[in-house]
Design a protein around this nucleic acid. Sequence first.
DNA 1: GCCTCGATCGTCCTTTCGGACGATGCCGCG
DNA 2: CGCGGCATCGTCCGAAAGGACGATCGAGGC
Lengths: 208, 208
Amino acid sequence: MIRLVIADDHPIVRAGLIALFGLEPDLEVVAEAGTPDEAVACAERENPDVVLMDLQFGSHADTTGVEATRRIRALEAPPYVLVLTNYDTDADILGAVEAGASGYLLKDAPPHELTAAVRAAAAGESALAPVIASRLLDRMRAPRVSLSSREIEVLELVAAGRSNSEVADELFVSETTVKSHLAHIFSKLDVSSRTAAVSAARQKGILR
Amino acid sequence: MIRLVIADDHPIVRAGLIALFGLEPDLEVVAEAGTPDEAVACAERENPDVVLMDLQFGSHADTTGVEATRRIRALEAPPYVLVLTNYDTDADILGAVEAGASGYLLKDAPPHELTAAVRAAAAGESALAPVIASRLLDRMRAPRVSLSSREIEVLELVAAGRSNSEVADELFVSETTVKSHLAHIFSKLDVSSRTAAVSAARQKGILR
DNA sequence: GCCTCGATCGTCCTTTCGGACGATGCCGCG
DNA sequence: CGCGGCATCGTCCGAAAGGACGATCGAGGC
């Protein structure tokens, strides 16, 4: 019997997962969590075989799904974590894998893919949705760009429509510095204007 | 007994909804649909009391949830349509209401809100999630901006990072014209830069 | 200890943007 | 028929953005 913990902020999705797994004789949902913190607590208390973890936890997110994954994987004798989410942006996938997830599934996956992934995870194998697997390969081919946290901070303000001088004021640096950051961002993203940078960053999942 | 049709592309969500409504003695799910076209077909065939309709139907969307809503409401003796979606952008809400939806719910709503909304809809009342209701009021206060199709076309290219002259070339007009369109867009959106315009348009659901 | 990288600041110069005018033609609505 | 909205084009000008240098300082890795 594979013991499962489900972590998702949508009651509907939780009900759906429980219903699905209820049809499988070898799977048992032992707890459900609506927040990342609850998820960590459940994992610690129930000591399940697999945790199904959403990445997006509503706006009141104290902790993220990635952070919860990291903390669960840091427990002693940690359960395997399967990430189950709507989006498949590069940043999300990489982040989740780095945090120790052993699989990454999309919510629109057919149910049999889901149950198969759970069984694979419980057996210690990694399970990636086909879409995700091919995306990961793409990522390997075209090595990923990573912006520094400061650069992301600048880009977020630019994306909100701020001018260089406004960004400078908000970050308590000179306008020159902002322009310098932007120049680096442009070269990393291979673009040549602020608007194109915002667009590229969104496409790559650096910005939401 | 209230007869329901569920339309959502996520098998998990469908399972969750079926499980939830299975707990209610007066609600019965008579059919489920994974695409908008199926939803219309189900509504016609089963003649239910209420249709629960998602708005986002995966990338292979031949028809949209809004379009399906419109077509269902155009049937003779049409069922009430409750929109159930993840996002609450202004454009989506307005679009759904115009298409004839009698309610608009978010997927992270608590289950009791959901069942209450279904019963309200079946009784011919409109049910809006509190979040949505207040957002609609905001919309009334600040009358909504509408960009012309040409303006949207320009803004899309700008959002992709094109410069004024590049946009001009792509649309076979002069750069002056592009600047003129942008000036109108700025005034409608109450911003003063292209990047801010893109950001505002995204927030208002004009751009995706 | 050196080297790289990120963050910070500077100057000079060119290009691009955006604001402020004005003008024309078309179309739909009352 | 006039009026307003839309799309189109134009000029002039100041402000913002971006490119091309160079430079310092601290943290972290080999």
